[in-house]
Computed example of a mutant assay.
Amino acid sequence: MIRHSEALAAVIRSSHEVITRADLWHGGRLVRARIPLVEGKVTLSSTEDIRGRLTATIVDPTGDLVPIGAGGLSPYGSQLHVWRGARIPGARSELVSLGWYRIQETKVIESYRQNRAGVWVSGGARIEVEGLDRMSAVQDSRFLAPGKPKRGATCVGELRRLCRGLIPLSTWAVDDEPVPKSLVYEESRLEAVQTLASALDAAAYAGPDGTMIVRELAAGKSSVHTFTGSASGGLLGCAFVTSRDGVYNAVVARGEASDKKAPRQATAYDVTPGAPTRWDGPFGRVPTFYVSKVIKTKAQAEKTARSRMDSLIRGRDREIAITAVPVPWLEPGDVVTVRTPRLEFSGRLLTVDMPLSAAGGAATYTVRALESGITTLDPSEPIEETYRAA
């Protein structure tokens, strides 16, 4: 969750004036501040190596931002720092950073006119911009030759070494580990970075302040925001897919066969009362199988089957897309609570689609929630709302 004030959180809950802007940078220098954004969106996804993407339209009345060479909104080293916020009554507006984006491509429609001296000059331009967050610099900087980490290197040390000079580095609160012995750097620097982060059970990504963040995957377990269908709860719609794929209601665990005797085997069933996927219910009988040479006895087989069946039941999840009032401080990885007239659940954000103008309408969020944590509600119950600022 991105830091913000209680005042901004209160304003977002009701009708408010949306403010967005972008600052143009090139070579570490601010070229133009407070560029208004006509339309577009920022898309953040925790399932992508480069998790931030920008599409934006800018109307330039003077034509100064037309990319000529390395100038203007050029894809040759220019970056946009994008903001969204609101005007707070009785105070200055407050903006939240949505990230730094290297310009990948610009499309220009420019008009021309004659000035009073009869000289042809720009009559203004409409410029469409596409950008990727700063991890794209790590992606572009491929290794010139294969290599290996130095002996005794650690994952954190290698992450800092591989990314130094490509993206600003923040302070990381993760437990360091030795580099995996089998690790070899081939061509992709970004793949190497993600492999090192995975060894720490963490994710590496460009944060809203433009620095590279390494964050443990299990970090942040408490809900930071609640969406409800009330007037100030911001929830507008909910969509999800329910599928039989990957759903089992029995686990058969067995050892490996030997020349002298048959393998030990045991079966555990999903017999949860009232569960729609229970064994011998309308869902049917759908077993899965697990074979391990570690299983030597009937007791070991029974324990393994029960353990894996329990894990399957607890681990069933559902990806739910919600449309809601844009909340600019939410990021992938944050835990949110959603309450509809039918369901209540908490889950971790996978994606955020944040519009860059009021005309862009609602934001879209994808939440991964465990089936075991989805509660069916009585529509007559009152709705409670909770909000928290950083």
Rank of each mutant, 00 (worst) to 15 (best):
V138R: 04
D64Q: 11
L196V: 00
P168T: 01
R348P: 01
L235V: 08
P178N: 12
G229N: 15
E158C: 06
G207R: 00
E110P: 03
W279T: 05
R102P: 00
A56L: 11
G373A: 09
V352G: 01
D353T: 14
S380L: 14
H81A: 13
W25D: 08
R316W: 00
G165I: 02
R21E: 14
A153T: 09
D270H: 08
T211Y: 10
A56D: 09
R102L: 07
A363I: 07
V252F: 04
V59F: 11
E130N: 13
E256H: 09
R84A: 08
G69K: 10
P282K: 09
Q79I: 14
W329Y: 13
D60L: 07
G207Y: 06
R278F: 12
S311V: 13
T277G: 03
T351E: 11
T242G: 12
G85I: 02
K41H: 14
G237Y: 04
Q139L: 13
S182M: 07
T277F: 12
V271I: 11
F240S: 14
R388G: 08
A145G: 03
G255P: 06
L24K: 05
Q104G: 12
T277A: 10
T288A: 02
L349G: 00
E177P: 02
R134P: 00
A153R: 01
T366M: 06
G90W: 10
Q139H: 13
I167T: 02
L169A: 11
D140P: 01
I322E: 05
G147C: 06
T272E: 08
L8Q: 01
D23E: 13
G52R: 02
R113H: 10
E384P: 05
G99R: 00
R285T: 10
G72E: 00
E385M: 11
P355Q: 04
Y290E: 12
P341H: 09
T386V: 14
L236I: 11
R29V: 15
R126A: 12
W172P: 05
V271D: 14
A299E: 14
R285V: 11
G152E: 10
V179E: 06
T304L: 14
M1Q: 08
P178C: 09
